[in-house]
């Protein structure tokens, strides 16, 4: 464990707390993509299936449970919460996720760390899917133009988590002799790159004060 990875995990937890605060606390799903929320639930339920046999550390174990629980809770409230359904904009949340899930599934089968292990295929699928899972959310924000304050912090924290993981991988690559995770590194790079435009606009709007809403052209 290094500081970059720890901060990355804390940023990831923060993104969940912000989203849960908005959807469960604020009873509003305005500006939130259910498609992204569902893809994240798939990412965690597939990647953390090793909860059943892998106890790398208590820290990992607890956070895996937290991420699966939080992502399923968010999907549940967005699908069945009366006031969440009323504020969720299904027409605008229209990114064709089948064009993301299918290629990731093919890639997961073709490119993974052990072609004889179904778990490795599923695990690689979840890594690839996470890289593109934010697209429906960014697509929705782009369509709406204006990003509500809490939503902008949620997206920022979610983007920052993987950016911090990139620093964590660089640190581990420099300090651990034979450490390499090409699948995760490349996917994490793509994932963070997708946020660059949002990061830019987030920075532009927040430097005038944290409560200004983010405007996307």
């Amino acid at each position: 464990m290094n500081i970059f990875r720890f901060l990355g995990d804390m940023s990831h937890i923060l993104s969940f707390l912000l989203l849960l605060h908005k959807i469960v606390g604020g009873k509003s799903a305005a500006g939130i993509s259910l498609r992204t929320a569902e893809m994240y639930a798939i990412v965690f339920c597939t990647r953390y299936i090793d909860l059943l046999w892998n106890f790398a550390s208590l820290y990992n174990y607890l956070l895996k449970l937290l991420f699966i629980g939080a992502s399923l809770t968010i999907v549940y409230f967005m699908r069945y919460g009366p006031s969440q359904k009323a504020t969720y904009n299904a027409d605008e949340d229209a990114f064709p996720v089948q064009y993301l899930i299918a290629p990731c599934a093919v890639l997961g089968v073709l490119i993974n760390q052990d072609h004889s292990s179904p778990f490795e295929m599923v695990w690689a699928f979840s890594i690839y899917l996470e890289a593109v899972a934010i697209l429906p959310q960014l697509f929705l924000l782009q369509k709406q133009g204006e990003v509500e304050n809490l939503t902008s912090h949620y997206v920022f924290a979610l983007g920052a988590y993987r950016a911090l993981y990139l620093l964590n991988w660089m640190f581990r690559f420099m300090t651990e002799p034979d450490y390499q995770q090409r699948i995760v590194w490349l996917s994490g790079l793509v994932q963070t790159a997708l946020y660059c435009d949002f990061f830019y606009h987030y920075y532009q709007s927040k430097k005038g004060g944290l409560n200004k809403s983010v405007k996307l052209p």
Binding site: D9, L63, K64, Q113, D114, H115, R182
Partner: peptide, 10 residues
């Protein structure tokens, strides 16, 4: 295929 790395990250 790459040798299997332990999955010690989230």
């Amino acid at each position: 295929p790459e040798e299997e790395e332990e999955k010690d990250e989230l």
